[in-house]
Write a protein that binds this DNA or RNA. Structure first.
Lengths: 231, 231
DNA sequence: AGAAATTATTGATACAGATCAAGCATCCCG
DNA sequence: CGGGATGCTTGATCTGTATCAATAATTTCT
């Protein structure tokens, strides 16, 4: 693997504290790959050959049953996915595909298991990362089960507002992908944007203007136990 | 803590391999308590004082927002809950209450964090347990998002059939609790039982008879990536 | 620039499930 | 035993969202 990639991975919390020999061993059979949007990365029920680390872009975790399909979570940099399957050596529960152009590191699961058994700093970092993944999926499930699609969109816009620090901003993805991300159809997203007009949201193409932040916040009722991705 | 309890906890995978000194230290401030049904154990947003271990009975993990409430998962013996919050020392994302009479061990989170940092066997066991919890919640989310309530009930009955090894069995909980467990209202559960009659399910009070296992299985389409709690 | 493909919007309809309301069954206890 | 509480069933209605269909807007390609 290229040295600059190696350093980039070394700086991730998950790998930052481990012994250097072990890190080099872990990197030996690892590699980084670029993927275009909408490329399937893994299929549910496959054995966990590689631990995946999203370095840039974003990845959709989804699942299918009986001809139906549903999006389960979105992974953004810098974060891993299928860590749970990797450490337990059990088949993936979800499939994964890129949402946008993405750079992803692939680390052999076998090496992860071998090294985490002997490197306690690495084991501790895995505990943190797994706990973080667990909490993310719980928050996502709460967002989906407790809120209507209109409320989910309102909270999404508030998060974007906070992220950019601006009352006007552009959507970072196509509306159809945003719809999927928010767990609704694109038809419904269209109607939802209309539905937020009374709360001071103005939409022109993919440009958003929040005319009345107070109104929107009062409607959205953001909550750190759902919307704060950092804790 | 009583010696027999202590041995019972020691036999759990999570604590089986750790150093004995560390185990005794962990037990020093721990205790086991019996709770009647429907008792609140923890409230979301509280700091994670104790790691909880369900020794018998069952516990409902639920969450509320803006006056709405939803059940997120059910914890059955022998398994932990709020391990993720405990190890990261972050507030609970979910509330918990007993569904039935339950025996629960309470272990100070602070001690868990202190000991897992030095005991690598314990750290590894925590990784396994966290990965298991993660996979459980993913399966639960798939069950809820991909299936209708009728299909969820059908698969539940098949699991009970398998568990008892008998085509006739009694429901192990009240129908209203079963409804909550399956993520529906009790009115809907009533209708769902009616809806499964054409697939060979006969209901008398809380006694279930599966007249045609093939028909029911063909309808339910059970899938290990959703219904197998052990992997 | 023009044609073709993709994405976005809008309206009409369908469906799963929640909620509300009323009646029925079952259990518990004095 | 009788009466009250609790749980269960059934029907009617309402809501949120998906689906289907048609058109409009935008992007991509040649």
């Amino acid at each position: 693997m290229h040295e600059s990639y190696r350093q980039e991975i070394r700086d991730i919390d998950l790998f930052a504290e481990m012994d250097d020999k072990n890190f080099q061993a872990l990197m030996r059979a690892s590699y980084v790959q670029n993927f275009p949007p909408r490329i399937d990365l893994i299929q549910e029920n496959e054995p966990p050959d590689f631990l995946h680390v999203v370095l840039s872009g974003s990845v959709d975790l989804f699942s299918a049953w009986n001809g139906r399909e549903t999006s389960m979570a979105t992974v953004r940099p810098i974060s891993t996915f299928i860590l749970a399957a990797s450490v337990r050596n059990l088949p993936y529960l979800m499939s994964a595909r890129t949402l946008e152009k993405s750079r992803i590191a692939l680390i052999p699961s076998q090496d992860v298991r071998a090294i985490f058994a002997t490197d306690s700093a690495f084991a501790q970092a895995i505990v943190s990362e797994l706990a973080q993944c667990y909490r993310s999926i719980v928050k996502n499930a709460k967002d989906l089960k407790l809120r209507t699609s209109l409320e989910r969109l309102a909270n999404y816009l508030l998060r974007q507002q906070e992220r950019t620090g601006n009352l006007e901003f552009d959507l970072t993805m196509e509306k159809r992908r945003l719809a999927s991300f928010l767990g609704m159809t694109s038809e419904n997203l269209s109607r939802a944007f209309k539905g937020l007009e009374p709360y001071g949201v103005r939409v022109t193409g993919n440009h958003i203007e929040i005319v009345n932040l107070n109104d929107l916040t009062r409607y959205a009722k953001p909550n750190p136990l759902i919307d704060d991705y950092t804790t």
